[in-house]
Design a protein around this nucleic acid. Sequence first.
DNA 1: ATGATCCATAAGAAAAACCGATGGCCAGCA
DNA 2: TGCTGGCCATCGGTTTTTCTTATGGATCAT
Lengths: 303, 303
Amino acid sequence: MLSRHVRYFLAVAENGGFTRAALALHVSQPALSQQIKQLEESLGAQLFDRSGRVTRLTDAGETYATYARKALRDLEEGKRAIHDVTDLSRGSLRIGLTPTFTSYFAGPLVESFHKRYPNVSLSLREMPQDRMEALLAVDVLDVGIAFDDVRSAEVETVALMIESLALVVGRRHPLAKRRRVGAQDIAGESLILLTEEFATRELIDRYCRENHIQPTVAIEANSISAVVESVRRTTLSTLLPAGIASGSRDLFAIALEPQTLQRTAALLWRKAAYRSAAAQAFTVLALDLSSQFQAGGSHPLSD
Amino acid sequence: MLSRHVRYFLAVAENGGFTRAALALHVSQPALSQQIKQLEESLGAQLFDRSGRVTRLTDAGETYATYARKALRDLEEGKRAIHDVTDLSRGSLRIGLTPTFTSYFAGPLVESFHKRYPNVSLSLREMPQDRMEALLAVDVLDVGIAFDDVRSAEVETVALMIESLALVVGRRHPLAKRRRVGAQDIAGESLILLTEEFATRELIDRYCRENHIQPTVAIEANSISAVVESVRRTTLSTLLPAGIASGSRDLFAIALEPQTLQRTAALLWRKAAYRSAAAQAFTVLALDLSSQFQAGGSHPLSD
DNA sequence: ATGATCCATAAGAAAAACCGATGGCCAGCA
DNA sequence: TGCTGGCCATCGGTTTTTCTTATGGATCAT
């Protein structure tokens, strides 16, 4: 990585002579003579004292050698640093999230990624899918977790799992013990729903139209946790990914029958973009985790 | 002195593209493609993301670039170290200056340096301290004259003198004959001050807050000479290093009592950097001159 | 002196780097 | 959607750099 001139110079300095250095470098001795001569000319100073029996550095040579060695060390360090980056002992990853994923999928994913690669710094930003796609396209995000019906042609996807919405209720809700419900059950519900800026809400509205039902929307909120906490404390219900209820004792996710209220969760990134080692590792982990969600019976809606 | 591979790599990184870099280097674009490809192979990592419209560094590339630049600086420093002749019959010195020093301290210093070493070429650049520290760190400047509270960890300092701000007024100003003034005198003044981009202004603002005074700021200017000329021609006053007034008949520097408005001027250079003979001679001269300022009664605020 | 070592120089051979031509790939635009 | 311009990769053939071998001059110990 250093020019021949400098490498040869250091070799001669270290070996205390042209002949020995030539031997060590597996080149002929005249090759060294020439290179060093050129270096001396370009630096405008004599680097070696060849007058005596042994070749030694001049003052100028001694001075230059310290800097040359430093430069060499820098380059070798750079080489090591690269491998550190690719083996994920550092680096960074900017992740975009659709709000509904933040709680139940992104949580475990980020946790396991951070556990495995603690030195990769993560940036998590929750945002609507439209915005996410735009930010991916201009390379402000590395990867997104959202749904597979992307609008932007610059974004490509890999499906993670099918996410089904369930009726989520609190322990005091009349339907709390039911295993499954149908559209007609929903029709009589008083719901608390996300506002229309969420893709989830659009999906629900379409579902209601298609099934010709008009459940009461008792409360609207623009935050998942507000919805969840309200459901927990009232006899209102909501429609959310079933995963959100898992892990919470007093929340029950009741499957919809038939399961028409579903969409495909996906990993998003810019088409043909360079994918950093961190991004690739994240992808692997995400696919892994999602297959657990799918296969393992733990996912309430996978059956 | 760096191998072609690395030099080309840096050029592509800096120019943001192969084509532009090729132009800058006066080689063909394929030559760059080949060299970079070889470098990437030898490092076992992709250095550039060529997928999009613009070519940009990958994480690995970014990492390597910092080390490569460091190596380059080392070699250039080595070159200068060689050329640096101890008798100062040639050489060069790149000096950074905080604006307030330009007039009264740097002037005499540069004058005496140039008188003593006429063959050393000088480069004087006025700039804010932050910028100065950055340029010192990347070896674009040899030495800086600023204040001793540096932010960068890569810069070290040697104190020159304590610089006290004084109330500077013109001959027609009511306080022109006073020997000293207090904070309460300042409170009633109409001032013309430097803008907030100057460290001096920050210092003054803090002083006012601490003394609970709010003098009128009649004029703001971002140039020392503008301030000085205005003070000379009006009955407005300003707060500036007392030294600025010395040597000018119709400017009067009135000491503040107590002297709380002061800071330590210092010489700055990059930590552990090679210091050329010129830089060392400059340091000696600067310390010498500053002790004259301090000791000799000529400095209006030294008593 | 003499032989052993060491480095410099010269000239041709080998290797590396380079150039121009060409083609593919995006991205912006009609 | 197809066109176009900008950008990079690849491919032969050429130029430049670097290397090798052969040789000669200098130094130093014997």
